[in-house]
């Protein structure tokens, strides 16, 4: 898995609450059997003025100049700044795949939907929850931000904010550890659990 230690970047402000994973990556792109290549279709329905389908040459499609992703000021942004309940709806991991493929490494919001939040950590993407007040401040700030996962901080040029992250998820993200490999280190424990479990619940 991709590591995350620290980044420094401006944040792209996406001022909207309850952004769902259908909006992050519309269903027609879920027909792909690959894990990569979703970046050009991130926020497809907001980003382009035409209807997108898999296999189109996205560089030739008309872009929506009103949508913040198309604002040249944010073309290098690696941080997405948004509102509460980001990533709600469908469990599609294509959403973090698309964000990662586009070039985002971290997302800051007051809250995230559960499955999306979890999926981010599997893909080297760091979701950061900060209070509504701090997120409001960051929307007004509009400058360079530094994120340090080890220290659990988000810094502006004159402020530092701490964020919470589960210690195990942090360890895996900082070291880029393979989840399956780690779990299989417990193989004998799983086997012995399984033996007892099936002895008790014979119908399984």
């Amino acid at each position: 898995m991709k590591k995350f230690t620290s980044i420094s970047s401006i944040a792209m402000p996406l001022d909207r609450a309850n952004i769902d994973t259908d909006a992050i990556i519309p269903k027609q792109f879920l027909k792909s059997i690959k894990r990569s290549g979703f970046g050009p279709n991130l926020f497809d329905e907001w980003r382009y003025l035409d209807h997108g389908e898999p296999g189109m040459d996205n560089s030739k499609r008309p872009i929506n100049p009103e949508f913040v992703l198309n604002d040249p000021r944010y073309s290098e942004a690696q941080i997405l700044l948004t509102r509460r309940n980001f990533g709600c709806g469908s469990s599609r991991e294509h959403a973090p795949w698309a964000l990662d493929d586009y070039g985002f490494r971290a997302i800051i919001a007051p809250s995230f939907a559960d499955i999306f939040y979890n999926n981010c950590f599997k893909n080297g993407l760091l979701p950061i929850s900060l209070s509504t007040e701090i997120v409001d401040n960051l929307f007004n700030y509009n400058g360079q931000l530094s994120i340090d996962l080890d220290k659990q901080t988000v810094e502006t040029n004159d402020q530092s904010y701490n964020f919470e992250v589960d210690p195990e998820r942090k360890r895996r993200l900082i070291n880029g550890l393979d989840d399956i490999g780690l779990t299989l280190q417990h193989e004998s424990k799983i086997r012995s659990f399984e033996k007892k479990h099936f002895a008790k619940f014979t119908w399984l």
Partner: peptide, 20 residues
């Protein structure tokens, strides 16, 4: 409960899942 594709792979390979 619903899970993402990385977790689908994890369950296929290990029969288990990490949960908070």
């Amino acid at each position: 409960f619903g899970i993402g594709t990385s977790e689908v792979e994890h369950v296929l390979a290990t029969g288990c899942l990490w949960q908070n």
